[in-house]
Simulated assay, not measured.
Amino acid sequence: MPQSPFSLEPIFTAAWRIIRAMLSDPVRRFQFSLLLLAVVLLLGTVGYVLIEGLPWIDALYMTVITLTTVGFGEVRPLSHTGRLFTILLILVGVGTVAWAVQNAVEIILGDRLWQSVQERRLEEERMKLSNHYIIAGYGRMGQQVVRDLKRQGVPFLVIDSNPDIQEELIEQGIPFLIGDATQDETLLEAGIERARGFVAALSSDADNVLAVLTARGLNPNLRITARASNERTESKLRRAGADRVVSPYTIGGHRLTLATLRPTVHDFFESMFHETDSDIDIGELTIGEHSPLAGQTLSGCDLRRVWHVNVIGVRRTDGRFLFNPPADYVIAPGETLIVMGPAEQIRALEERNQSHII
């Protein structure tokens, strides 16, 4: 006799996978236990109505006192069938109640509640962000950008499409958004219109080009920096709207050469940029027309005595750099001073320069 091609085994296998996946999550497990408890409560009520002929309210009362084992008396003596039904209800119902209570305690005292609270706090913080930086991609380069921005106290937000990093970001208190950084909806939700800068650090050059193009279209005034894996992509990123393009392989090659030829200089920069407790930083001061520094000499500004910083370079209005400018150099509006000194002093100096109150 030929076998039927129809089999229930795949259906049962798929159902078991769904149930196992659902029970692996504490919240879903608690929801399932509440649903099972409601079913037991309904079946117990209906059972007392059919077996003992009790009114619905009395049947519900009997079911509740049976499941909770409070020891209250019966509304009226039960028949032998009713007692057997009560025994079965106790065996099934008490275990169900205990399981539901256990799941509730696990959620309240476990990591799930803490994670939920932290996630909501970070979401509220994300909604309030303004004049912040958006980092698209939380790979090795994106993580380094995050560490540097955290060290400098700069507000930022991370966008990544990998949901597995969510728990890590929550533990570190990093505002984030799980989504595609090349999509308008994701960038708008990240506050791209209120943002100050955008860092495209995605793993694919094509994604970085699209992310830069999208970000520039949503915010023409955005300061955009992008990562490029090869030199051919740099021109595309600039055409897409990137202000600066960084090639990690080119920079890495320069650092290897520096470490080989001038190891002490390499160690100095390594200490300044990679040690979390480093107190040295490099900043920039763009001189506006109304800045008190405009028209003064470097010695007249007295930045070294007042702010404990040294001017190590000047970017002139024509884009050329002047390294180690002399003390009698006159600062012109539109130029940018590159200064090095204590990190806190650098940040305070940059803030005051933006307000033209140096």
Rank of each mutant, 00 (worst) to 15 (best):
L8S: 06
T13K: 15
A14C: 06
A21H: 09
M22H: 11
L23D: 07
L23H: 12
F30V: 03
A38D: 03
T45L: 11
T45A: 11
V49R: 13
W56C: 03
M62R: 13
I65K: 15
G71Y: 09
F72R: 15
S79Q: 12
G93M: 05
V94N: 14
V97T: 08
W99K: 10
V105W: 14
R112W: 08
R121C: 05
L122I: 04
G137F: 03
Y138G: 04
Q143S: 13
V145C: 10
R147H: 07
F156I: 04
I159Q: 00
S161A: 15
I170P: 01
I174G: 05
G197V: 04
F198H: 12
L202S: 00
L202V: 04
D207R: 09
V209C: 01
R216M: 01
K236M: 15
T264W: 15
S271M: 07
T276E: 14
D281G: 04
E284R: 13
L285Q: 01
G288D: 06
H290Q: 12
S291T: 07
P292S: 06
L303C: 01
G313C: 02
G319C: 00
G341N: 06
G341V: 05
P342I: 02
E344L: 14
Q345H: 15
I346L: 08
I346E: 06
S355H: 15
H356M: 14
